[in-house]
Design a protein around this nucleic acid. Structure first.
Lengths: 116, 116
DNA sequence: ATCGTGTATCGACCGCTGTCAATGTCGGAG
DNA sequence: CTCCGACATTGACAGCGGTCGATACACGAT
């Protein structure tokens, strides 16, 4: 794993996002709960823009997000945590700085379940 | 507009979902708010399964959703309204029954903004 | 070791959201 | 017309979620 920090668990690849698209066959309740968790991580303006900024720059450290997003440092940390736990953001601590990058495979999986 | 019933507004096609993918350039705040609204409509286990059921059957009336989803009639009505206002579900009243179908174009637009 | 800085966590506040019982509305059947 | 059934709306409740100040933690520099 990339990060040794506790509390950040990288979701494995054997979850609901590997299963049939929702437009093909009705999803079970467990799959729906899992998928709604990931979509819930995306369903926030601040996190959408955060993900967008990280995607555009490739790698961004937390301190460079407070300005563009106009949010306090604890709030930024909160949102990066949510996205990280959803598997959409990968974090790596280098020195004192936390560097974030998007997990494009995870994003692609979300698109696929949505009928891609 | 297709429906004369008040409260249900069909989202036009000139909104944030027509704009660049979030992985290409940072989204503006207004676009992020709009997108998060649509994703928020998807970020619920009941609505995910509801959409999945409608997609699988092509057309479903409200009364046939209470059983599979194990929710009360007002709750079903609430969720169909959310999905309808998000543009993900199209509704047509035929007689006493409300028939729902998925707006696959809208779903495709969501996928596209997510990097498709 | 001590200090300074970048992040994470805690606690609290408040608005939002899912849920259902009760009620209202509309359309068809008799 | 009157009744019945499908659906929408309202009101109320509980739980979740975004936000920030205060605080704790981790790491590099001195």
């Amino acid at each position: 794993m990339a990060s040794k920090r506790p509390g950040i668990v990288a979701p494995d690849d054997t979850d609901a996002l590997c299963c049939p698209s929702l437009v093909e066959s009705p999803l079970g309740e467990a799959e729906a709960v899992e998928l709604s968790r990931v979509l819930g991580a995306l369903a926030d303006p601040v996190r959408i823009r955060l993900l967008s900024i990280v995607a555009a720059q490739g790698e961004v450290c937390s301190c460079d997000l407070e300005g563009p997003l106009a949010k306090s440092q604890p709030t930024i940390s909160h949102h990066t945590r949510i996205l990280s736990e959803a598997g959409l953001l990968d974090g790596e601590k280098r020195g004192r700085w936390m560097w974030w990058s998007v997990n494009s495979g995870r994003l692609a999986a979300v698109r696929r379940v949505l009928g891609g």
